[in-house]
Design a protein around this nucleic acid. Structure first.
Length: 271
DNA sequence: AGTGCGGCCTGTCCGC
DNA sequence: TGCGGACAGGCCGCAC
């Protein structure tokens, strides 16, 4: 389940493998994703080459000569580069074959992801235009969060996970950042003090950076192809630890639902 | 405008 | 051992 660190890790891995390679052809094996994969890609992309791969929120953006390919990994999306002659696997949706004989394949069992195309400024695309700041950007600070949250009754965890407020904070890292900041997840966003938001900004940045340094480890990927457990899994203080003692005070971790999402917290440390 | 929630999906896990 | 159902969750889009 890619959150921002996983998407950024994917970007770093993929970019050097695709930049400046000419597209030979595009094969759409299964257009069914969140939105149908535009079939126009098949005649748009051949002959073009990607100049860079960048990221906004959890969207990967492949700049081509005449537009931008927008890729969202959803919950279970994966990009991999392998020989064009390699057999397709189950749930391979799209294959971009390069003239050098390699192919970029998008695989997504649960189809929550998306592949879109724009020949305009991708940041103006409807999916991206209303997004909040990046968590590592200076605009994401205590004053911003405090002002945005006034009069908001929504739980602070849901507020934090709202991509219109700040991007890239998914369910796991929201619980972790709130724990580290000592803020109860169900507290109304509008009731949180500026000092607490200052702590929250710091812990969000901290948690995301740690996860990124750990290679973007996630919960369910923790046995990778070589059987290695993910590093960040071992750093989780509350997520998935219901009934286990708090690492700080030994109080048992609680689990609740907020906005239909599992939420974990220490009832003693977070208030 | 803010809020709540159904829906999209399949692999995994649990209880019977 | 097999099977059904709950669960996981990013994010849209609708209803109020």
């Amino acid at each position: 389940m890619p959150e921002l660190p996983e998407v950024e890790t994917t970007r770093r891995g993929i970019e050097p493998l695709v930049v400046n390679k000419g597209v030979d052809r595009v094969l759409i094996h299964n257009a069914s994703l969140r939105w149908p994969v535009p079939t126009t890609l098949c005649h748009l992309l051949p002959g073009q080459k990607a100049s860079r791969v960048w990221r906004r929120s959890k969207y990967l953006l492949f700049d081509f000569n005449h537009g931008t390919l927008i890729v969202h990994l959803g919950m279970t999306g994966h990009l991999r580069l392998d020989p064009a002659v390699a057999e397709n696997r189950k749930h391979d949706h799209v294959e971009i074959v390069f003239t050098d004989g390699t192919a970029l394949r998008y695989n997504d069992p649960r189809r929550f992801g998306a592949i879109l195309w724009t020949d305009d400024d991708p940041l103006e695309h409807p999916r991206l235009s209303a997004l909040g700041p990046e968590p590592f950007a200076p605009e994401f600070n205590a004053t911003y969060l405090y002002q945005r949250s006034r009069n908001r009754k929504v739980a602070v965890k849901q507020f934090l996970m709202d991509a219109h407020v700040v991007v890239g904070v998914g369910n796991i890292y929201a619980s972790e950042a709130l724990f580290r900041a000592g803020i109860a997840p169900a507290c109304h966003a509008g009731k949180i003090s500026k000092a607490a938001y200052k702590r929250l900004v710091e812990t969000v940045v901290e948690v995301l950076k740690e996860a990124l340094a750990a290679g973007g480890t996630t919960i369910r990927d923790f046995a990778d192809s070589e059987g290695r457990p993910g590093y960040f899994t071992q750093s989780l203080c509350v997520y998935g630890r219901v009934g286990q003692p708090c690492v700080t005070c030994k109080t048992l971790i609680k689990q609740i639902k907020l906005g239909q999402r599992s939420t974990f917290y220490c009832p003693s440390c977070q208030n």
